[in-house]
Deep mutational scan, measured.
Amino acid sequence: AEEIWQQSVIGDYLARFKNDRVKALKAMEMTWNNMEKKEKLMWIKKAAED
């Protein structure tokens, strides 16, 4: 689920960090860890469908 979420937001994060992939990935990891369980559930369901 986290991978699907990352694939959907990586472009936004890379743009925000001027294509600094290391910073973008760290920010994504922090965002994922801070997400509410119900927000993650949507992505977990999406992962299950694929």
Rank of each mutant, 00 (worst) to 15 (best):
K26Q: 11
L41H: 08
A24K: 00
E36Y: 03
G11K: 13
W5K: 00
V9M: 06
A24F: 02
A1H: 04
E2V: 09
W32G: 00
D20C: 04
D50I: 15
K37W: 15
K40H: 04
A48V: 12
S8I: 09
E39H: 06
K46L: 13
Q7A: 15
K18M: 14
N33D: 10
E36H: 07
A15F: 09
M28Q: 00
Q6D: 02
A24L: 03
Q6W: 07
F17V: 02
M42S: 08
I44M: 08
I44V: 08
K40S: 01
E36D: 15
N19P: 03
L14R: 01
L14H: 02
S8W: 12
N33M: 11
K45T: 12
W5P: 00
K18L: 12
I4N: 09
E2K: 14
N34D: 07
R16S: 08
D20A: 02
S8K: 06
M30I: 15
E3A: 11
R21D: 05
W32H: 01
I4Q: 09
A48K: 06
E2N: 09
K46E: 06
A1Y: 04
L25M: 14
G11V: 10
N34Y: 07
E49V: 07
S8P: 00
V22D: 12
Y13E: 01
I10S: 05
K40C: 03
W43I: 02
E36A: 08
E39V: 04
A27Q: 06
K26R: 07
M30D: 15
E39A: 04
T31C: 08
W5L: 01
L14D: 02
N33E: 12
K23F: 04
I10K: 05
F17L: 03
K40L: 05
G11D: 13
K38R: 10
A27G: 04
E36V: 03
E49L: 11
M30T: 12
Y13H: 02
Q6M: 14
A27M: 10
K40A: 03
E3M: 14
M30W: 14
F17C: 05
N19S: 11
E39P: 02
N19E: 07
L25T: 11
M42L: 14
V9N: 04
K18G: 10
A24H: 01
M28I: 03
M35H: 01
D20M: 02
V22S: 09
W5N: 01
R16Y: 12
K40D: 01
W43N: 02
D12F: 08
A48F: 12
L14V: 04
N34I: 06
K45M: 14
K37C: 14
R16H: 05
E49A: 10
A15S: 12
A24D: 00
A27D: 04
I10A: 05
D12R: 07
N34R: 06
L25W: 06
V9F: 05
A15E: 15
M30R: 07
A47D: 04
L25K: 07
V9R: 03
K18H: 15
V22K: 10
D20E: 06
E36L: 05
N33I: 13
D50P: 08
K23M: 12
S8E: 06
E39Q: 05
M30V: 13
E39S: 03
R16Q: 13
A48E: 13
K46T: 08
E29V: 07
G11C: 11
A48N: 09
A48W: 12
N33P: 02
D50C: 13
E36P: 15
N33H: 09
N34L: 10
W32K: 00
L14C: 06
I4E: 03
I44K: 05
M30K: 10
K18S: 14
A15C: 13
K26G: 12
G11Q: 14
M42H: 15
E3P: 05
W43L: 03
A27L: 06
I44D: 05
M42P: 13
M35E: 00
R21Q: 09
F17R: 00
A48S: 14
I10V: 05
A24N: 01
R21L: 13
K18W: 10
M28N: 00
L14F: 04
I10E: 05
L14G: 00
K40W: 03
S8D: 04
E2R: 05
Y13S: 01
A15R: 13
M35D: 00
A1I: 04
R16C: 09
K26H: 14
R16V: 11
M35R: 00
W43Y: 03
M35T: 01
M42I: 15
R21W: 14
W5D: 00
I44A: 09
K45Y: 12
R21A: 08
K18V: 06
T31M: 13
Y13G: 00
S8Y: 12
E39D: 10
M30G: 06
F17P: 00
E2I: 12
W32V: 00
L41N: 06
R16P: 01
L14P: 00
K23L: 12
W43R: 01
K45E: 15
Y13T: 01
K37A: 15
V22Q: 09
D50S: 13
E49Y: 07
N34A: 13
E2W: 10
R16M: 14
K40F: 03
A27R: 03
E39N: 04
L41R: 05
Y13N: 02
K38G: 13
N34C: 12
E2S: 06
A1S: 05
K45S: 09
E49Q: 05
T31F: 10
D12H: 09
M42W: 15
M30A: 12
V9D: 01
K45D: 09
S8T: 10
A48Y: 11
K26C: 04
M28R: 00
N33R: 08
A24S: 05
G11F: 10
E3G: 06
A15G: 10
N34G: 06
D12P: 03
A1W: 08
M35K: 02
W5I: 00
A15L: 12
M42C: 13
L25S: 05
K45N: 12
M28L: 07
A15I: 13
R21V: 11
K18P: 07
A24G: 01
F17Q: 02
A1L: 02
Q7V: 11
Y13W: 04
K40Q: 06
E36N: 09
I4L: 15
V9G: 01
Q7W: 11
G11R: 13
A15W: 07
Q6S: 09
V9C: 05
L14I: 05
N34T: 11
R21I: 13
T31E: 09
E39K: 04
L14W: 02
K23N: 05
N19W: 07
E49T: 07
E49S: 08
E49W: 09
D20H: 04
L25V: 08
A47P: 06
Y13L: 03
V9W: 02
M35F: 04
M35I: 02
W32M: 00
L14E: 03
I4F: 15
E36K: 08
M30Q: 12
W43E: 02
I4W: 07
K45C: 10
D12L: 08
E49I: 10
Q6T: 10
M35N: 01
K18D: 14
D12V: 12
E29N: 10
D50Q: 14
